[in-house]
């Protein structure tokens, strides 16, 4: 099929202002948007910059705005866009470094602020090497273990666009993963961070994050559960 691909371009070293380049191309409808971008790099413009690594929806490198929605370029097929016009832009709310590449550092700063790692200083159980957990206890935080840190959720959030200090949905999802882990002991510290002005209370339940998540994590629900724990002190 014939498509018209419009790509946001910004190459700071050229001194040119940000602009859009349009490419008319013949593509297979079953190709992914990432394949289309690779084709542009190979055939038309090797200077086109974007992040990609695994190209199979696992590493979370290639989140971008495709026809106005945050998606992973490696997970969306051209035919599923239902349009012959495809616009590809960098994700919003983070500084564009080059073309589709944004500065992810503020995003990872927020991620690090919620202590996204397992904390338990209690002695290892005498009868074994593991801290046991029932299937039900494991199931409790299963959904939020799926996050791949692609930033599609945080950069689709209107509260984050307006205020980059907001910790953002991805950080809350990763805090949720440990807060609800029965083996972890640092929930109170994480909740202190999330109770600050730039924490969970900035969430307006717009649901953009849930819609944008390429892993189908129920993000808004996870945020609501964290809010409830802050309020009640009970992790259920």
């Amino acid at each position: 099929m014939q498509i018209k691909l419009k790509v946001f371009r910004y190459l700071p070293h050229t001194g040119k202002k940000p602009h859009y380049d349009t490419y008319e191309m013949e593509v297979d409808p079953n190709e992914r948007v990432l394949d289309v971008l690779e084709q542009v790099r190979a055939d038309s413009d090797p200077s086109l910059g974007y992040r990609r690594s695994c190209a199979h929806g696992v590493c979370g490198s290639d989140a971008m705005r495709i026809n106005g929605r945050n998606m992973l370029a490696c997970k969306v097929l051209v035919k599923d866009l239902n349009s012959t016009q495809i616009t590809v832009e960098p994700i919003l709310g983070l500084k564009v470094l080059r073309d589709l590449i944004v500065d992810m550092e503020p995003f990872f700063d927020h991620f690090r602020s919620v202590m996204p790692y397992f904390v338990n200083d209690d002695p290892i159980p005498e009868d074994g090497k593991e801290r046991l957990q029932s299937p039900a206890q494991r199931e409790r935080f299963d959904d939020t273990t799926k996050c791949i840190l692609c930033a599609a959720c945080t950069t689709s959030c209107p509260s984050f666009w307006a205020n980059g200090k907001y910790v953002g949905p991805a950080a809350i999802v990763n805090a949720h993963r440990f807060i609800f882990d029965s083996r972890d002991t640092a929930a109170a510290e994480r909740l202190e961070v999330l109770n600050e002005d730039s924490g969970v209370w900035r969430c307006r339940t717009a649901f953009n994050c849930t819609e944008a998540c390429p892993r189908d994590i129920e993000i808004t629900k996870a945020i609501a559960e964290v809010k409830q724990v802050i309020y009640s002190g009970k992790i259920e």
Binding site: S134, A136, Q137, E139, R140, S182, A187, A188, L191, E192, N195, E196, D197, G199, W201, V229, I230, Y231, S232, G233, K234, I235, E236
Partner: peptide
């Protein structure tokens, strides 16, 4: 799954 009670953050103005 059992309910755990933790030291909840001190409610601030936002809470």
């Amino acid at each position: 799954t059992n309910t755990r009670t933790i030291q909840k953050p001190k409610p601030n103005f936002e809470t």
